[in-house]
Design a protein around this nucleic acid. Sequence first.
DNA 1: AGGTGCAGTGCAACGAGTTGCATAGGTAAG
DNA 2: CTTACCTATGCAACTCGTTGCACTGCACCT
Lengths: 180, 180
Amino acid sequence: MALEHAILVSLTERAGSGYELARRFDRSIGYFWPATHQQIYRVLRRMDEAGWVRHTEIAQDGRPDKKVYRIAAAGKAELTRWLAEPEDPAVLRDGLGVKLRGASVGSPDVVLREVQRHRAEHATRLEVYRGIQKRDFPKPSTLHGRELHQYLVLRGGIRAEESFVAWCDEVIDALRKDNR
Amino acid sequence: MALEHAILVSLTERAGSGYELARRFDRSIGYFWPATHQQIYRVLRRMDEAGWVRHTEIAQDGRPDKKVYRIAAAGKAELTRWLAEPEDPAVLRDGLGVKLRGASVGSPDVVLREVQRHRAEHATRLEVYRGIQKRDFPKPSTLHGRELHQYLVLRGGIRAEESFVAWCDEVIDALRKDNR
DNA sequence: AGGTGCAGTGCAACGAGTTGCATAGGTAAG
DNA sequence: CTTACCTATGCAACTCGTTGCACTGCACCT
């Protein structure tokens, strides 16, 4: 259960409201640990009760009030504890693999089109990641500490998407040949 | 919700009991869609009630009785329907990325060791997959239909693990250099 | 004037996945 | 002889994640 920890990591980078955190997850951490605003609100409240974070209510005009959360000492301790704790490696869980395995039940053509769709979506994500790399990390060899770590996480995303796209191409090619 | 469909795909390959399906998931489909026996039993019962599968109780001596499930016409129809339905591409969800991003909160050394552990585990999985490839698909160019599809799914697993191992190596190298 | 979208927090219900436990007889190893 | 593991199914309780909805108010487009 790492959403708590993903939020804590994000809060060490800077404080923020539930809404802001949800946006941040959409744009960066969420590429590796997706979460909706609902989950984030619930976990923030839980962590507030546990004393891992503190919040300050901020009145805004023209906009609803917001609660800005910042990490507390107990939260930082928990984060440090979790970082040292071994975790099970992530497992692959992809419905496309299941569909491919079942392709001969229906018509393989239908599955082929689905693979093409997935290829396109993964290629789009890949381009987004590459854009971030160009903009935010133009000179990787000069990076250190936190920035280096952020860069390396992005590299993981890029590699995963590259590998996915390459797999789709292999599948598309093989299915086409088999169809003739 | 694809566990239903993963089970249906497995049952089209051959009939089996909940226990047998759980073993099968451990060894093959589960590499791409993990499931515990608990989930499988529950879903089998639900599908039985829905008429997607039928079961026959089989008495065994020396062993508990078992219920062998086979796919019904409604199940096959549902599977065909699902195969044609577009699905959201899988998202990456890896706690190691979160840890890496938080590495500078604790000591980056601790996270480095965790990355090394993950590298080893992924390398082991990769070897397992390569073993299966060698044993079951020695001549990929001769494959057609269902066998080809199974091979391609395995290729996906191999590519994913290769890419993961390569990423770990990149991270390990970069963290070591940054530490000096 | 009306619709869409953004900022902001939240409830309620549901579905999916995890963990611990129970039962029960057989077989193999120490 | 006891311990441990395998086959086989299942309940109960829980956490995690998803979806739909509600309310407020401003800004922008048509």
